[in-house]
Design a protein around this nucleic acid. Structure first.
Lengths: 242, 242
DNA sequence: GCAAAAGTGTTTGCGATACACCCATGC
DNA sequence: GCATGGGTGTATCGCAAACACTTTTGC
């Protein structure tokens, strides 16, 4: 093994592909870009690109994310970015051998149609998952894998706060869960579970924010330092319920 | 993105690295090979190797596994092989740019010192995790990631049977959990949980096997068709307990 | 008989679910 | 006042941890 004979291996291209999720309008959306060139010119695809010579996959993913979304580097550096898996089927790209490391990222609801792709990415838009038509390459598969991974991770990690703005109400956090899982949760019980987990959320001492008009103003919370969710927050009956 | 300009990307070498685990002598062991060449000549490393031109990472991993362990192709094809993540730090290999897709595999206790590496792998042996000295490249990191992944996966999947021979007793299955988690489990409760999960194990109609001398002979079970463990089997207090 | 391991039964208590209820705001 | 959403309290039910107990073997 590991012979390092220069002829012992085939040169591969290595790319990253990103499944960038947000919650908007009561639905889980994913960021898609329209391809400007062949193959799959005109088709929608996940954002991504080649690794630069001195970049790790994580670094490349953050760079691409900043380029495609127009978010500030500092913001992108703090986002939750999770490596999903690597797709290496020899025929996944019709032109050449490309191995792609897929990532999932979570962003809060953004101003609107995102940066209009400064480079060769002609168009970028948010699309509700499930309303994406066919995608280029094996991106439908990647998206499907990313979606189920995100759903499962909400159960035992704190990453749901990644979908929320810096300060949020528990109602907003709950609607993130309800949107991603597509289930209704009991508000009092949700509240208790979240507050019972040390470091999941921290109360913002100051004021309360209106929920958009009617109703009692809700207390504001920030994401806490915890990353794992020890008593897991299980979805009702669907799947991993106990 | 995805410009396909041949100069737009750097050629990378792509390898697979395997963390192959087994339970032997009351400890979790991992398969290591001693490197025959530089870099890290003489050091111990995880088995692995380059992808062939028309191979996916999964196919390459199974091929390498068969080569290193001497297991029959049919056996290897049925093993649980799980993609962990991809390691792509630009400096992880001192010679060149190598991106490595890491896998974890579970095998039952094997005859003994495994095939003596037919190729350039000088030596192969089982080593209890924690007694591996320093490893080549970033393999200590990979091994550590693999170990925690395996531990977590035992909670909510059925893959513990992968550590057992085709027919096993519930005592053997329990000792797999106890070895990997390094905790003691209550036998009656373990029994109930395992038997209450449909498809986890199936009773072998015929005889019972002695437990190696003393004690009441135990009933034999086979791995069932289930892969996920719905009421998860949580480890006591450590970590994901509820 | 004794030790060791398999297997069964039973009690108990924690925790989550499923509610009922009160509070504060906009219209 | 009423609708809307935030927040608090509480009874019940179920599960699982803990442990006592029986069974079957080897020595």
């Amino acid at each position: 093994m590991k012979g390092y004979d220069p002829h012992a291996f085939e040169p591969f291209a290595v790319t990253v592909d990103l499944a960038v999720f947000t919650v908007r309008g009561g639905a889980l959306n994913v960021l898609l870009i329209r391809r400007g060139q062949d193959p799959y010119a005109g088709a929608w695809a996940l954002p991504g690109g080649f690794l630069l010579p001195r970049e790790s996959a994580e670094t490349a993913a953050r760079r691409e994310l900043a380029e495609e979304t127009g978010l500030a580097e500092a913001v992108v550096a703090a986002l939750h970015l999770e490596q999903l898996r690597t797709y290496s089927d020899p025929d996944r790209d019709p032109r050449m051998r490309v191995v792609s490391v897929a990532f999932a990222a979570l962003v809060p609801d953004m101003p609107e149609p995102v940066a209009e792709g400064g480079g060769d990415a002609a168009q970028a838009r948010w699309v509700p998952v499930g309303e994406t038509g066919p995608l280029a390459f094996d991106h439908a598969r990647i998206l499907s894998d990313a979606r189920s991974r995100i759903g499962a991770k909400l159960e035992y990690t704190c990453l749901a706060t990644g979908f929320c703005p810096p300060e949020f109400t528990l109602g907003e956090l709950q609607s993130v869960y309800e949107t991603v899982w597509d289930t209704a949760l009991d508000r009092p019980n949700f509240r208790r579970k979240v507050l019972a987990t040390p470091g999941f959320v921290e109360a913002v001492p100051g004021a309360a924010r209106l929920t958009g008009g009617r109703g009692k103003p809700a207390a504001l919370y920030r994401a806490g330092p915890a990353t794992a969710l020890h008593p897991p927050l299980l979805r009702p009956t669907e799947g991993h319920a106990q």
